[in-house]
């Protein structure tokens, strides 16, 4: 089964391809320049593998949370590719992707993820690995001030392995919640670690058509004020 995974949700941009049982992948830090990096990266991976879009069984995309614009660049590209090649799609959480990486690379079984969400908040989620070696989410993904995280995670095993950019951004509030002594090894989601989660979702029949590839922003309020009385 052949699948292409794409993520542009954070400062990183990454593409991974599972083609004829081989994995091809690229990852690059490219803040503010996903629009020039992403499609050439996809093209180079497909060319390297000798794969046509029409040979794929589906697309997997980073659905957020992360930078609103970055998430939409990734999803815009996925919508265009999926619609043009008549492929179905599955979205994977960026937080869960980093947790999956912690399991696949460092055999961490419990992970708390925190991405710097600006405006003095973090996107966060708590994950543990299941019998199939896939990270499962425990609490709904949320955005909150770092000081509230300790309360949010009440009842769960803490401290555990931390991933994401949130830890270095708010060390005073967060450092007691993770076991890594220094900065987390895993700071950004990488499409390579979306493959396993995404393929599992395809098997479960969770795939949807191109236009239903949609972001999960987690932060759903805008700072704009409504007119009086609205």
């Amino acid at each position: 089964m052949n699948y292409l995974a794409i993520d542009a949700s954070t400062e990183a941009c990454s593409v991974a391809l599972n083609f004829n049982d081989k994995i091809y992948h690229q990852f690059e830090l490219c803040p503010q320049s996903h629009s020039t990096v992403l499609l050439p990266m996809i093209d180079s991976i497909l060319t390297q593998a000798g794969c046509q879009l029409s040979e794929l069984n589906g697309l997997i995309f980073g659905r957020g949370p992360g930078s609103f614009t970055g998430v939409r660049i990734g999803i815009g590209v996925v919508q265009g590719l999926a619609f043009s090649a008549e492929l179905e799609v599955v979205g994977v959480s960026t937080l869960r992707t980093m947790a999956q990486q912690a399991y696949e690379l460092y055999q961490r079984k419990r992970v708390v993820a925190a991405i710097d969400a600006r405006m003095s908040e973090v996107y966060t989620g708590y994950f543990s690995v299941n019998a199939q070696g896939i990270m499962e989410q425990h609490l709904p993904e949320a955005v909150m001030p770092p000081s509230e995280l300790v309360n949010y995670l009440k009842g769960l095993e803490i401290p555990v392995y931390g991933v994401g950019t949130g830890w270095d951004a708010y060390p005073a509030d967060l450092s007691s919640l993770k076991i890594n002594e220094d900065s987390p090894e895993i700071l950004y989601p990488d499409a390579r670690f979306m493959l396993k989660i995404g393929i599992e979702d395809f098997k479960k029949g969770l795939a949807v058509s191109a236009e239903l590839a949609q972001p999960v922003y987690v932060r759903d309020t805008v700072s704009w004020k409504k007119l009086p009385g609205r």
Binding site: S35, L39, R72, I73, G76, S84
Partner: peptide
């Protein structure tokens, strides 16, 4: 608006690539 433009640009560019 840059964010709005990027939606049409990303979809349009990748559609052309796929087609």
């Amino acid at each position: 608006l840059v964010g709005a433009l990027l939606v049409g640009c990303s979809i349009g560019r990748s559609l052309a690539y796929g087609w």
